[in-house]
């Protein structure tokens, strides 16, 4: 597909730009370390970095998974009836806009600089994003679907399980937003106490002005987040094979496999 090659082209372009700027010594080495030095840092630190990457990736994915489940539950409850909506809307909508980073001091105060504190932070932030997304997606499903399911004898829980939840899958863009958010919050939470992690690595490198290691950690987070996003997209696409080809697909921007 053409779109994929454009992606490769963009990556190559950015890489060349980076090499050019650092190679021509337009900026001091400290401000923009060259790709060679970043690779050099990986060469020296790789045993630590493998561990740090696994720790950060695990934290982010675990928090994202827990947050998605929480968000799914909250979104379903909010759409279930007005009572639940009344209870939860105010909580979700007030937690969501507050930057999770602002709550880090409290988390550490209550739970210490522990894995639990970090996971809780990621889970809550992702949960609120997914909750709003699920709630909006459910409440904007064509009402004929609900009526048809009622007429055909589906119970309330069957309506959700067999009709509403499968129908909203193609529209769950909130999952992708939450996944990206989980990496941002993971790194921020790691600054405040997880020594052996990519966030911790950045903090350690900062003390010695080791900018190539900082750059390396940033790149690794970017790659992890990108891989997560691609995985989510491919899962959503697989679960959406029934959906009508979108306008984007007509222009060849979104790949969709269809039966016929």
């Amino acid at each position: 597909m053409k779109a994929r090659w454009f992606g490769v082209l963009t990556t190559m372009g950015l890489l060349i730009l980076w090499i050019a700027i650092s190679g021509l010594r337009l900026t001091p080495e400290l401000f923009l370390p060259s790709p060679a030095r970043v690779i050099g840092s990986l060469w020296i630190n790789w045993p630590d970095i493998v561990y740090d990457t696994a720790a950060t990736g695990g934290r982010a994915l675990l928090g994202f998974a827990a947050g998605s489940m929480l968000g799914l539950g909250l979104g379903v409850l909010m759409s279930w009836n007005r009572l639940w909506f009344g209870f939860l809307d105010v909580v979700v909508e007030s937690v969501r806009p507050v930057p999770a980073v602002a709550a880090i001091p409290f988390m550490i105060l209550w739970l210490g600089p522990t894995l639990l504190a970090q996971l809780l932070l990621i889970t809550l932030s992702c949960g609120c994003v997914v909750a709003v997304d699920v709630y909006i997606a459910i409440t904007t499903v064509n009402p004929l679907m609900v009526r048809a399911a009622q007429c055909l004898g589906a119970s309330r829980s069957a309506l959700y399980r067999e009709v509403l939840l499968p129908i909203i899958v193609p529209r769950l863009s909130g999952l992708r937003i939450a996944a990206a958010l989980s990496f941002a919050i993971t790194v921020a939470a790691e600054f405040a106490g997880a020594q052996w992690s990519l966030g911790g690595l950045i903090m350690r490198a900062r003390r010695s002005l080791d900018t190539e290691t900082i750059m390396l950690a940033m790149l690794i987070v970017g790659v992890l987040a990108r891989a997560t996003d691609l995985t989510i997209r491919s899962i959503l696409r697989r679960l959406s094979r029934w959906a009508e080809p979108t306008t984007l697909a007509l222009y060849g921007l979104e790949r969709r496999e269809h039966l016929s």
Binding site: L144, M145, R147, A148, A149, Q150, C151, L152, G153, V163, P166, I167, V169, W242, A243, E244
Partner: peptide, 20 residues
């Protein structure tokens, strides 16, 4: 209230799009 002893067919399609 609605029940499975009555079944409505609408002008617009009410087929479940995700089911064959």
């Amino acid at each position: 209230s609605a029940g499975s002893d009555r079944l409505m067919i609408f002008q617009d399609s009410a087929l479940f799009p995700h089911l064959t």
